[in-house]
Amino acid sequence: MEEKTFDWLNPFASIDLGIGAWADGIKGWAISNRDLIQPLKIFFEGVIVRIEAALHAVPPVVMLILLTLIAWQAAGRRVAILVGCCLVLLGLLHPEAWGLAMTTLAIVTSSVLLCVLIGLPLGILAGKSDRFESFVRPVLDTMQTIPAFVYLVPVVMLIGIGNVSGVIVTIIFALPPLVRLTSLGIRSVNQSVVEAARAFGATPGQILFKVELPLATPTILAGLNQTIMLSLSMVVIASMISVKGLGNEVLRAMGRLDAGKAIVGGLGIVMLAIVLDRITQGLGRSGRERGHRHWWQTGPVGLITGLFARN
């Protein structure tokens, strides 16, 4: 190593704290401890494969009708028509597009499920405790802004390529809005209502489940919607670590400069995004905005229960 003289005007050039090497050390540790992670990996791989198999097992037409019905239930007739059209368009893009979309949907579903499991409790905690909020906020900032390529390598070193790594990478990017908006939702609950609940002898748990969470639900669902959208925007990057699906089509098309194939994959992702976005946004609007009725009184379920009620 050549000897450097310390320069007061440019001190940074002569100081090397060795952060890069230190981080590389973590990578080395990760590689040597892969065995510890394997059982977990196998478990999650199993879950993802099962979800994917289930989605593939349903015939496209049945799946299309099912998703349209869900959209009708969650968001009303107009959204259902839009969702139906988007799905038909998705299927018509390419003979293989539907299957690829289901693979992507399986990855997104797994990521979002895990995001909810992790993000909801974290968000509630952050909503309740200022100290935890101030701790978690920079972590969330990091997760959202650090380039995916930075954590792609360590995750692959630790877990290997494949679906599980794809899901983890997706979670890192997609989790923050759910935590943030859950915290915001809990914090913006009308404090006088919480006080009233306390005054009538509710326990902290009852206050959370009977008052705070129900009142925060629209905000939390907005967070869920954002998490889903961000998960979808990660599918191309995830395909770099060998995740199949629509993202992989885009990646391969990019490598071959095949614009047509890229459009097929890209539009497929957009269609999927519109479908998931409209359904979750519909959930976010409370049933009471649609005429003070319970969810089972509207949509297709409402039709069926209505039939039974009349008999």
């Binding site: 209502v193 009233a196 609940a197 306390r198 005054a199 009538f200 129900p214 409370s286």
Partner: peptide
């Protein structure tokens, strides 16, 4: 609080849901 005290608030503080 639950059994022996009832409270009424200026802001009403009813639960909207």
């Amino acid at each position: 609080r639950a059994e022996r005290i009832g409270m009424v608030f200026q802001s009403m503080a009813l639960m909207p849901h």
